[in-house]
Deep mutational scan, measured.
Amino acid sequence: KELVLALYDYQEKSPREVTMKKGDILTLLNSTNKDWWKVEVNGRQGFVPAAYVKKL
């Protein structure tokens, strides 16, 4: 599985998104969309802005 690092805090704005804190390590589930990547964090799956994370 591929991991990404949260570069910034992000507060979810819809049920399809997830909240993350700067420094969190997230599991990358899908990065086919250039703007929104699907990740898993704390057992929850959802989208975060691709610009807010970096592949490890």
Rank of each mutant, 00 (worst) to 15 (best):
T27V: 14
T19V: 03
G23S: 03
S14P: 05
A51T: 13
V41Q: 12
G23T: 02
K38Y: 15
K21C: 10
W36D: 02
Y52I: 09
V4M: 05
Q45N: 08
L56K: 04
N33S: 11
K13E: 08
K21E: 07
A6D: 00
D24V: 05
P49H: 02
G43W: 04
K21V: 09
T32N: 13
E40R: 06
E12Q: 13
V53E: 00
W37I: 06
R44S: 06
K55A: 10
E12V: 06
G23C: 08
W37T: 04
V18Q: 03
S14G: 13
K13H: 10
V4E: 00
Y52Q: 07
K34F: 09
D9N: 09
D24L: 05
E12I: 06
V48H: 00
Q45S: 12
T27N: 10
T27F: 12
L5K: 08
M20Y: 02
V4R: 02
V53I: 10
P15Q: 11
L3E: 09
Y10K: 01
P49S: 02
E40K: 06
K34D: 12
L29D: 02
D35G: 09
V18R: 02
T32H: 13
T27W: 13
V4T: 03
K22Q: 11
E12Y: 05
T27P: 15
Y8D: 08
V53P: 00
E40F: 06
N33G: 10
P15F: 10
D24W: 12
K55I: 15
M20I: 15
Q11V: 15
L29P: 00
T32Y: 10
G46E: 02
L56E: 05
A51F: 09
K22Y: 05
D35Q: 11
L56T: 07
W36H: 03
S14L: 09
S31H: 11
M20F: 11
K38R: 12
Q45I: 15
R16Y: 14
A50F: 02
Y52W: 07
V39C: 06
R16A: 14
D35M: 13
I25G: 01
K34P: 15
N33D: 15
L26D: 00
V53W: 01
D9V: 02
T19F: 04
L26A: 09
L56P: 04
A50L: 02
K21Q: 11
A51H: 13
L3R: 11
Y10N: 01
D9C: 05
N33R: 09
E40D: 09
N42R: 12
V18L: 15
Q11S: 12
E17G: 13
S14C: 09
Y8L: 12
W37V: 08
S14N: 14
V48W: 00
G46R: 02
Q45W: 08
A6V: 11
E12L: 08
K1V: 15
N30K: 07
E17K: 04
K34C: 11
F47K: 03
V53G: 01
L29V: 12
N42K: 10
E40A: 09
G43A: 07
L7V: 07
L56C: 11
L5H: 05
K1M: 12
K21R: 13
E17T: 08
K13G: 08
R16C: 14
G43M: 07
K21I: 10
A50D: 02
P49D: 02
L56M: 11
V39H: 00
G43I: 03
E2G: 12
G23N: 08
M20D: 00
E12A: 13
N30V: 09
T19C: 06
D9Y: 04
K13P: 05
E2Q: 13
K38A: 09
K1S: 12
P15M: 10
L29S: 03
K22F: 05
S14V: 05
P15C: 09
F47W: 15
V4W: 09
V4P: 00
A6C: 12
S14R: 10
K54V: 15
K21Y: 12
W37G: 00
K1E: 12
L3T: 10
L3V: 11
R16E: 13
Y52G: 09
K13D: 06
A50P: 06
E2N: 12
G23M: 03
A50E: 04
Y10P: 01
A51Q: 14
T27H: 12
N30L: 09
L29N: 03
Y52L: 14
P49C: 04
W37N: 02
G43C: 08
K13S: 12
A6P: 01
T32L: 11
A6W: 02
K54L: 13
L7F: 04
W37D: 01
N30S: 13
V39R: 00
T19N: 07
D35N: 13
G46N: 01
I25Q: 05
D9Q: 03
Q11Y: 15
T32K: 11
L5P: 00
V48Q: 00
S31P: 06
R44K: 12
L56Q: 06
L29W: 07
V48E: 00
R16L: 15
G23E: 02
V53Y: 01
S14D: 12
W37Y: 08
A50G: 05
Q11E: 15
G46C: 04
E40G: 06
R16F: 15
Q11L: 13
M20L: 10
S31K: 08
E17Y: 06
K13A: 13
R44L: 08
K34L: 10
L3W: 13
K34W: 07
K21A: 10
P15L: 12
N33H: 12
L29E: 03
E40Q: 08
K55R: 14
S31G: 12
R16M: 15
Q45C: 10
L5Y: 12
K55G: 07
T19Q: 05
D9P: 06
G43R: 05
K38M: 15
L28C: 07
W36G: 01
W37C: 04
Q11W: 14
G23R: 02
V48M: 01
M20A: 02
L7E: 05
L7S: 03
V39N: 00
E2F: 12
T19P: 08
G46S: 02
E12H: 09
T32V: 11
Y52S: 14
L3I: 10
A50M: 05
